[in-house]
Amino acid sequence: MKTCIQGFCMMIITIITILFLSTIHIKSNHQNEVDLALTTAIQQTLKVLDDQRYPIESNEELISEFARNFFIQINSDSEVEFVIYGVDYEKGLLSIEVTMYFQYIDGKTGTVNSKQTMIIDDIKET
């Protein structure tokens, strides 16, 4: 009987450890995903502005281009919230914070966020 109780306790401890490690892994994966997606999306957006592949003629168009580039990078099924701190399509400035909401295994909602600011050094004039 003593061996059965010890075995059951070890099984419970193992399950709790696995849940704990998976929770840490899930948050880490989402943080890496949002960091990489934000960096890549801002770089691609400002590259479109710098290369003048097609005209971006307002701050709203620049934000729209950023959102399109960002969602191309995201693979998870998560809710995303953007906070725009600064945008200027004429000077090539984009400063954005992204907050991602996701679900843990136990159903609780977790959040990760990332903030970046990038400026193009020299925009080519047409």
Rank of each mutant, 00 (worst) to 15 (best):
I18Q: 06
I18D: 04
I18F: 11
L19D: 10
L19I: 10
F20I: 10
L21E: 08
L21C: 13
S22G: 07
S22C: 12
I24P: 07
I24G: 09
I24L: 14
I24M: 13
I26Y: 05
I26D: 04
I26A: 04
K27I: 04
K27C: 05
S28P: 08
H30N: 11
Q31A: 06
Q31I: 04
Q31H: 07
Q31V: 04
Q31M: 06
N32W: 10
E33Y: 02
E33A: 01
E33H: 03
E33S: 03
D35K: 04
D35G: 04
L36M: 15
L36H: 15
L36S: 15
A37G: 01
L38M: 06
T39Y: 14
T39C: 12
T40E: 11
A41N: 02
I42P: 03
T45K: 02
T45E: 01
T45Q: 01
L46Y: 01
V48P: 05
V48G: 07
L49F: 03
L49V: 03
L49S: 02
L49Y: 03
D50A: 14
D51C: 09
D51V: 12
D51L: 13
R53Q: 13
Y54E: 12
Y54R: 09
Y54A: 08
Y54Q: 08
P55I: 09
P55K: 10
P55V: 11
P55S: 12
E57A: 15
S58E: 06
S58G: 05
N59C: 05
N59T: 05
E61H: 04
E61F: 05
L62I: 02
L62N: 03
I63N: 08
I63C: 09
I63M: 11
S64M: 10
S64N: 14
E65T: 13
E65M: 09
F66T: 01
A67H: 09
R68K: 15
N69L: 01
F70Y: 01
F70R: 02
F70D: 02
F70T: 02
F71I: 03
F71N: 07
F71Q: 06
F71C: 03
I72L: 10
Q73W: 01
I74N: 02
I74C: 03
I74F: 03
N75F: 09
S76C: 04
S76P: 04
E79I: 10
E79H: 12
E79C: 08
V80F: 04
F82H: 02
V83H: 13
V83I: 15
V83Y: 11
V83F: 13
I84S: 03
I84K: 02
I84C: 03
Y85F: 10
Y85S: 10
Y85C: 06
Y85Q: 11
Y85G: 14
Y85A: 08
G86H: 05
G86S: 07
G86F: 03
V87E: 01
V87N: 00
E90K: 12
K91Q: 14
K91D: 12
K91L: 13
K91Y: 10
G92M: 02
L93T: 12
L93P: 06
L94Q: 00
L94C: 00
L94H: 02
L94N: 00
S95H: 11
I96C: 01
I96Q: 00
I96M: 01
V98D: 02
T99Y: 05
T99C: 05
T99A: 05
M100F: 05
M100P: 07
M100C: 09
M100W: 06
M100G: 07
